[in-house]
Design a protein around this nucleic acid. Structure first.
Lengths: 361, 361
DNA sequence: ATGAAAGCGCTAACAT
DNA sequence: ATGTTAGCGCTTTCAT
């Protein structure tokens, strides 16, 4: 009876608040920690401790508070907690786009790993132009996240300055630079381009070409690929680069098909194509099939990403595997460690890449 | 000079805070609205108005505040603003998984539309089991978002109750129910199944089969498909359902290949397959190609999703188009309207679907 | 182990 | 148009 009437009193309180009972009141309704504390017969701070550091309160108090929470359906206001404690447990992730499924795994791994540690992910899409990134950055910093995960490295000095000034841990991903804003998890696009050229050469290919998204990272891979190929004698005599076709990012299967047609028109003698994504490579394979070009007999194809479908193609696709999941979980680790006060020993992590040999080369 | 020394004074203040100068001070460092106001020579609330409702202040004040913002690099603390104003400008989105690219478009459209209105998206992955959803929900409600967008309808009565109690606008998506928690944007999975059966029948198919993800919505489509097919006489005599193969969600190309093999083994006479995703359908097409089964000659294939690659396949894939982008932008609209106080007139929106006829049937 | 007081940085309400 | 005051709901600091 005692307890019930107390509950009633608390509920009456809240109900009064909902109606804006007192003049000047701005309370929104819904139970607060004070309500729970009152119900449990303790001070608000004790209720807070019961919820956040259960070890710091007596078993009796713990039990009473938990009962009050259950009775009220109380859900802590993390906004208020964040403001008071300067820890938002929010991490921002910025990707150029979610499509073009390269970043999916990273975002997924990031979200999962962080969720496991009680953090949540705020998503931002910057597009492939840098213009939107600055506005987005302010919106993000305004939320005072405990970390910011960026796709790609930060070019704009303005953005760098703002990021630095915010004091928020930053992880740049999917690329390498000797001068990161803060932490870094990525791999070298230049090395990939060179390694693929080397690989195709070792397989006896002598007339290679590339189809590439026109975003900055893909272009750097394509350039490195072309340079290495020229060095290895895989360009036509007198030519300083291999045939290449730039398509708008994000890359699609259709781009792959039209890319191969274009390439074949310009250079019918090519014997291998490096595609800047597996989707592009699939397009090439489909175009080849439609044009009765044998793969790998007449044309070798190598993709990038090792997406889930690549191993199941016919023939299975040779590709450069990049571990997007590892990028996401490593970035998450970095931020969790940092925000728990541990210093990250080696805040620059080159995850590398692997050429997965399958039947398409 | 005047201004400069004022800036210095303000900076000195902040610097003192950073070091925890005063005893008991918990300030984190970084400029606050008070600093900006002091620099501009106005009261904090005036600075606030200059930033949020520029029309409500004089040109002179506006200019001074803007100058102070520029000088300091001040970024408003949205956490504090949200707490005070009860508007977080945060919207939570929950998807089973980001992979299985059905939900990508929705999340993308949601993020973009909301970003345009000054909102940001918090992402949650629930997995395909309901168990994680409840915990996730509390984490979300705790942030007091201005809206919650759910993928699929809410089954658990517990979750319904909590959602309702929170008073937060909710949009359920990708499905239809007469009893939504709040708002709804989706389409009928049952109607799709029936429509596909009807469509295949009209194309002269008489031995149809299905490959389907084993999540709840795909199963309902498959069941409706089978029932309609039986009604139309497309099952074997004496059989009450058509051959079907359930694969684990999210669906993959590999699942499509193995699914077709399994189906062919159990029922070699099938002349059409309904796949619960375009990726599955692509797998079927590749398996058919590898086994020299002509599409659509020997076997018709119809997918679901109309993903970007589907039109570019060989042959182009007939599929059920679902406008994931419209789902996302409509959900965003609903939430923006609600949170701006407009009541949403028709909070239940059936976006329907379209069968896109291409060459694979 | 528990509590009182004092904010976190901002904005709603009520003056002027 | 601008300012004063009083919170938003929580947690820190410093007692006890």
């Amino acid at each position: 009876m005692e307890k019930e009437s107390l509950m009633n009193a608390v509920v009456a309180d809240v109900t009064a608040r909902r109606k804006g009972g007192r003049q000047g009141s701005r309370k929104a309704g819904g139970f607060t920690l004070r309500d729970v504390a009152k119900l449990a017969g303790v001070a608000p701070i004790t209720a807070s401790r019961a919820l956040n550091t259960p070890d710091a309160v007596s078993a009796k108090v713990l039990q009473k508070v938990q009962a009050a929470v259950l009775q009220t359906g109380y859900v802590p206001n993390l906004l208020a907690g964040a403001l008071a404690s300067q820890k938002s447990r929010l991490v921002a992730a910025v990707v150029p786009t979610l499509s073009g499924p390269m970043f999916l795994q990273t975002v997924e791994a990031l979200t999962d790993t962080l969720a496991g540690a009680g953090y949540q992910v705020m998503l931002g899409q910057s597009g492939y132009e840098n213009s939107r990134e600055d506005a987005l950055l302010d919106a993000i910093i305004g939320r005072r996240p405990d970390g910011i995960v960026l796709t790609g490295i930060t070019r704009s000095p303005q953005a760098r300055r703002r990021l630095l000034a915010s004091g928020i841990p930053v992880v740049e991903t999917w690329d390498l630079t000797p001068t990161p804003v803060d932490m870094l998890v990525g791999f070298s696009h230049e090395k990939i381009g060179a390694a693929v050229a080397q690989y195709l050469h070792s397989k006896g290919k002598r007339r290679v070409a590339a189809i590439s998204g026109d975003d900055e990272r893909s272009r750097r891979r394509a350039t490195a690929f072309s340079e290495a190929a020229v060095r290895l004698g895989m360009a036509r005599p007198q030519e300083s680069e291999v045939p290449a076709c730039l398509v708008t990012a994000p890359t699609t299967l259709g781009n792959g098909r039209s890319g191969l047609r274009e390439l074949l028109q310009r250079a019918p003698d090519i014997d291998a194509v490096f595609c800047s994504s597996d989707l592009l490579a699939l397009g090439v394979m489909i175009e080849a099939q439609a044009s009765a070009i044998a793969i790998p007999g007449q044309l070798a194809v190598i993709g990038l990403g090792d997406l889930s479908f690549s191993r199941d193609l016919h023939p299975p696709l040779t590709t450069v595997r990049i571990d997007g999941t590892a990028i996401g979980s490593t970035a998450a680790r970095f931020i969790i460690d940092r925000s728990e006060g541990k210093s990250v020993a080696e805040p620059i992590c080159d995850l590398g890449f692997t050429i997965i040999e399958r039947a398409s080369v």
